[in-house]
Design a protein around this nucleic acid. Structure first.
Lengths: 289, 289
DNA sequence: GTAATAGTGTCTTTAAGACATTATGGC
DNA sequence: GCCATAATGTCTTAAAGACACTATTAC
């Protein structure tokens, strides 16, 4: 096609000739608060699903931003951070959701993103939202427990102990815990599973921690995301044996943990982008069929 | 919000009030032909990029189909298969690409899909295409090689190019070799990397083979996708040792391979959905940073 | 003192990989 | 005969996990 014809074609091209589909980005933003995994949620300020919790998100600005940029913008709006200053926050694409009926207004295709953040300031309501908050993810995991993929029906059910959410601090939502608007429950579930898998073979667990951090704090991240206790000694040796996972600062913590013990050494994230060998989730049964 | 108000709101809602973004699905369909990995490509029948090769795809039918359905429809149109009869073809979402400049006509967000297919009939041109063909993927891999086995993680850190967006209009401006229209070179590269990773921990390599198949044929799939020779003996024992990967038909091939040898036993895909333990790619460097 | 943590040592089991071996069948 | 393949066996090495142990600090 010669340049003239192509120019003419583009000039006559009418973008509104197609049936419209709206494009949004939604963000599953995860962080750790008091040793538990939390997700950023907003209370919807208008219909549909007014007053219900939903993932933060919004329409992509047509012609003005990429999907990544839109996700960063939406995340920044709800966390109060400058988009450019999302700093150590990890943001990656999770997947797209486009069933024609997922939004009652019209056909909306949503590109979901997954964010790992160190402890952030309290959430604040963005333009469209009536409120924003970090909510513990267990509230939305009906099974009360993390692992779909690898774990068949959880053996211990809910452990009254310390992990996976049954900490006793809040009543576990049986069956009908809180729900997210639209299909955001599904998006959150997909995001959690991605997070659980991702920290196996990448050093992204460090993205949940402010630097510097101790090995014990890093282990707490794994335990919160996987919802299972890990062997402290083996974990320690394993982390230090994976090249590039963490690097020592040479410093040592000024104070030991709240329950005593020696002062832990301090580390920062290393330069590895993949863990070799990976840290695999425990409990993998032989019957993952 | 009471039902009356909500009804009223929906009635007055104008889908065209937003700047339009078009939504398309594009499919990276992979198959094996003569021991080499091939990708389905169409020759564009109209502007933009008229006459150039591109991935098969098209606009999502607003309000009438989900993304998965759209991808299956597009794949069926170019392969000549009934959409319902895609049978053993594996189809999964790959990722979304939405840089505002990736299509000169307007802002187009494309949801990419990845398909693994056993040998299919020759491609045929769909409605919009001037032609369709299975092209060897090496033609599009500049390095001529399946990519550093592990060195390019799917998406890591804050590289805005990995997914979604940051990539400019036509990334991968490498060497000569055929090029795909739009940013389809990048989508293909991402699809290939996904395929290489996916057959490590899932039995999806079997989706490239008609049943029944021999262990040697399965090994040929791995060698084609990974672009590296594997040790026949170790591979054989490994495949049979992973529970649920393949199951014996009890039969044996009627004829040995073209170069002689004993008649191989025949297998079909087992019922495992994940491989435990996985088959890891060889050659993993220690320094995947 | 007890209790909990940081960090290290040792042993067992599993799996990966290198290599060898036997048998089959085309040429 | 040669040669490539199918299938199995053996050995070495790496790594995961269980467990034990010492040292340090809060209480």
């Amino acid at each position: 096609m010669d340049p003239d014809r192509e120019r003419e074609f583009l000039a006559e091209y009418d973008p509104r000739a197609f049936d419209p589909i709206a494009v949004t980005v939604d963000v599953v933003a995860l962080t750790l608060r008091e040793e538990r995994l939390h997700v950023l949620a907003v209370r919807r300020g208008g219909p549909p699903f007014e007053g219900e919790w939903a993932l933060p998100g919004g329409f992509v600005q047509a012609g003005r931003e990429s999907l990544d940029e839109g996700a960063a913008r939406e995340l920044a709006e709800e966390t109060g951070l400058d988009p450019a200053a999302l700093g150590r926050v990890h943001l990656e694409q999770l997947g797209s959701y486009g069933h024609p009926d997922r939004d009652p207004r019209m056909h909306v295709v949503s590109i979901a993103y997954l964010a790992f953040a160190p402890r952030l300031p309290d959430a604040r309501a963005g333009s469209d939202a009536a409120g924003a908050a970090w909510l513990p993810v267990e509230a939305f995991s009906p099974a009360g427990q993390p692992g779909p993929v690898r774990s068949r029906p959880i053996d211990q059910g809910r452990r009254p102990g310390a992990y996976g959410g049954g900490t006793g601090r809040r009543p576990l939502p049986d069956e009908d815990g809180p729900r997210l608007a639209f299909d955001h429950d599904r998006i959150l579930a997909d995001g959690l599973e991605r997070a659980r898998a991702k920290i196996e073979y990448t050093p992204l667990a460090t993205a949940f921690l402010p630097e510097p951090f101790t090995i014990g704090e890093l282990r707490a991240v794994y335990e919160a995301v996987w919802g299972a206790p890990l062997h402290a000694g083996n974990f320690h040796r394993k982390v230090l044996s994976v090249p590039g996972f963490v690097e020592s600062t040479g410093e040592t913590a000024t104070r030991p943990g709240s329950r005593g013990g020696p002062k832990a050494r301090l580390y920062r994230a290393g330069d590895a982008r993949l863990l070799h060998p990976p840290l695999l989730r425990p409990d993998r049964e032989d019957d993952v069929r």
